[in-house]
């Protein structure tokens, strides 16, 4: 059975339209005008038990809203979802014992107390047997290298150390489903790396079903084979990361280092020059022409070093978002003549 099943899930927020100026504000006090924000629009998604899935999307795309719906924090406007067979927004204890939520932007540990005290509280809230509690806590703090910090007040920890403690707190009850909302946000590379390695190892060992949202492509590359791209409340891509790269990345980046310190001036005929920093040059060329270009360059000039890379994932994703935005805009322009269409927020 699938761990997570989502059918036609939608969440629409009604917000009061804010206007500038005192008169408009006073008028709005008596006759508020509303507009509707479609945070999630009819999402369908099935996630099998043991998958590690990434949600990608720009800010405000609906990733976090989807996670909140699946955690039962908010109730959907329409549609269905089942996680481990439970309807999340019924907030049954039986369900709440089986999943965990980590949010990089919010913290749940008691600020002025050592993490150990918050862990103790979690033990009681989740009814974890003492021996299991001690074992899991020691294991997790060992893996994350924060065991010696257990008795230091949380407010004295660094952001990275605190995030690691947040992870431990969330995993103490060995959840079957884990929602990670930007767990590495704002962390330095070392802390990011530690958390990535931890999550990978933990997930491989326990087979926990994980959904991760992150803005760091590195997280996604290291952890997730399956990627769901959400844009404007809708899923615009669902598949493997490699497919996404193949699908989008129809070009390669070639970096050449010339040996005599001189950079030839006629390189632009091979491809687009994106960096010129003698003796180095970076060229952007069509994927199927890459080998041809290298052969031609090497035949003509003396190069010290040549490397070929896929374009950076960030760039690909940004391009994907940009094209989604363009098609959305043209769609809306086409729709504006049809007033009965209510699916787009801009029409309200």
């Amino acid at each position: 059975m699938a761990a997570i099943e989502i059918r036609g899930l939608s969440k629409t927020y009604r917000v009061t339209r804010k206007k500038e100026g005192l008169v408009a504000t006073l008028r709005a006090l008596f006759r508020p005008e509303y507009e509707y924000v479609h945070a999630v629009r009819s999402i369908d998604l099935t996630i099998e038990s043991g998958e590690f899935v990434a949600f990608l999307g720009p800010n405000g795309a609906g990733k976090t809203t989807t996670l909140k719906l699946l955690s039962g924090i908010i109730t959907p406007t329409s549609g269905e979802a089942r996680v481990l067979g439970h309807i999340p927004w019924r907030r049954e204890n039986a369900y709440r014992r089986r999943f965990a939520l980590v949010m990089g932007q919010k913290n749940q540990l008691w600020w002025d107390l050592p993490a150990a005290e918050s862990f103790h509280l979690h033990q009681q809230i989740y009814g974890i047997p003492p021996d299991q509690f001690t074992r899991v806590r020691d294991e997790l703090t060992e893996m994350l290298g924060v065991r010696q910090l257990l008795h230091r007040p949380v407010r004295e920890l660094s952001l990275g150390e605190r995030m690691k403690m947040e992870l431990v707190a969330a995993l103490l009850h060995s959840p079957q489903v884990l929602f990670l909302d930007e767990p590495t946000i704002g962390l330095d590379v070392v802390a990011q790396y530690t958390i990535q390695q931890f999550l990978r190892e933990y997930q491989a060992r326990t087979g926990t079903t994980v959904i991760l949202t992150s803005h760091y492509m590195k997280d996604v590359v290291v952890l997730c084979r399956r990627v769901v791209v959400i844009f404007d409340g809708q899923i615009i891509y669902d598949g493997s990361l490699t497919n996404l790269v193949d699908h989008l990345g129809d070009y390669k980046i070639i970096t050449i280092r010339f040996s005599d310190g001189q950079v030839p001036t006629d390189l632009s005929r091979f491809g687009k020059i994106i960096l010129r920093e003698p003796p180095r040059v970076r060229l952007r060329v069509a994927r199927n022409e890459a080998t041809e270009v290298i052969r031609a360059v090497l035949a003509r000039y003396i190069a010290e070093d040549v490397s070929v890379e896929d374009p950076p994932l960030e760039e690909l994703i940004a391009a994907l978002f940009a094209s989604a935005r363009n098609s959305r805009l043209s769609q809306e322009r086409g729709n504006s003549a049809v007033p009965e269409d209510t699916t787009h927020s801009a029409n309200h």
Binding site: S71, G72, I73, R91, R96, R97, L101, K106, I125, Y126
Partner: peptide, 15 residues
């Protein structure tokens, strides 16, 4: 206001 209730709502104890 700050969304801290999120963590309370996911706990298997009466909110």
């Amino acid at each position: 206001r700050r969304g801290g209730l999120d963590f309370v709502l996911v706990k298997p104890v009466d909110t």
